[in-house]
């Protein structure tokens, strides 16, 4: 099994496209960091869309209490309109806590800590690149004709497919590590640390949150989409034996999925579609987290089962 995985790893890295994708990922993060810093350095003091004056770090520190006080008043007004909104209740708790315990909020400009959270948005790119590998790793063997060489060995088809699926995930983990390391380096290279603290409400208590855990947690949740898209692309690639079709359909479903779900969310079957549960913390249909996780697990298992069944059973005529 280890030898099979070594083979697959070697094959993906001997292709130029793999290197290009990895480079694009790194360059994109550096570009985002450089552009955000460019925005930070612009002379501030014009009010932003919400009417809050954006100022640089030094000017910011003096008047945070006033701003929080203003926010608190506004939030309480909102709460009167929507008395059961948990988000508003939490925000009020946090604001009150800041004033009571004299804890400054993070500055509104980009800091090392806030840039760490960029990592979660990079998973969309990792999703795209992993889907490209997943859609091609089986189908390319068919289009090259090498499948004949690969399957006439004393190794079961199931093991070969398992090696390919594992390597696809290993590649996405590799990209995630590369992404995180690049984000951390950029966070320190382009931005300075903030003195403020991020707060959140956990179990009705206000606690300080660690920007590192927040960033990693957000990434982990976003990674659910990566897993589902990878399994889908892998399934389509091994069933249709065409990487273009596999990647195309996967990307279409991934990007249009939310829109589709909005259209069909009124129907009761909508909650059984995995696309509704990709954001388990905030699913598109009204269900429990347990149900969301169940649907994701079942869908994933079905994708894997079909891929394996088809790959093992089908006659190879390529």
């Amino acid at each position: 099994m280890f030898n099979l995985m070594r083979n697959e790893w070697m094959k993906i890295w001997r292709k130029k496209s793999t290197w290009i994708m990895t480079c694009i990922l790194i360059l994109s993060i550096v570009a985002v960091a450089a552009l955000s810093r460019g925005l930070n350095n612009m002379p501030a003091s014009q009010p932003d869309a919400n009417g809050v004056t954006v100022t640089t770090t030094e000017k910011d520190t003096g008047d945070w209490r006033e701003r929080v006080q203003e926010d608190l008043v506004a939030l309480k007004a909102n709460l009167n309109e929507e008395p059961h909104n948990k988000e508003i209740q939490d925000s009020i708790m946090v604001a009150q806590y800041r004033l009571d315990h004299d804890v400054a909020p993070p500055t509104t400009t980009m800091t090392t800590e806030s840039f760490l959270d960029t990592n979660a948005s990079m998973t969309m790119m990792i999703l795209l690149f992993t889907a490209i590998v997943a859609g091609g790793i089986v189908s390319s063997e068919f289009t090259q004709g090498t499948i004949k060489m690969l399957l006439t060995r004393p190794v079961s088809r199931a093991k070969i497919l398992l090696a390919k699926l594992s390597i696809t995930f290993l590649y996405s983990i590799f990209l995630s590590v590369i992404s995180f390391v690049t984000v951390v380096i950029c966070a320190y290279a382009f931005f300075s640390s903030s003195d403020g603290a991020m707060l959140a409400v956990v179990d009705d208590e206000v606690v300080k949150t660690n920007p590192w855990t927040t960033a990693l947690l957000n990434t982990a949740y976003a990674y659910i989409s990566v897993i589902m898209s990878t399994l889908l692309a892998f399934l389509l690639g091994s069933v249709f034996r065409s990487s273009a079709l596999a990647i195309g359909i996967t990307m279409f479903i991934t990007f249009i999925g939310t829109t589709i779900m909005l259209f069909i969310s009124k129907y009761s079957f909508a909650k059984f579609i995995w696309l509704a549960h990709l954001d388990v913390r905030n699913p598109l249909v009204d269900t429990s987290t347990t149900f969301s996780v169940m649907i994701l697990l079942i869908t994933g298992a079905i994708f894997i089962a079909i891929s394996f069944f088809d790959f093992i059973k089908r006659d190879v005529t390529a």
Partner: peptide, 13 residues
């Protein structure tokens, strides 16, 4: 040991 039709090898290797 087998060659089925053309010996298709990995061209990029």
């Amino acid at each position: 040991g087998v060659i089925v039709e053309n010996p298709e090898m990995y061209k990029f290797l």
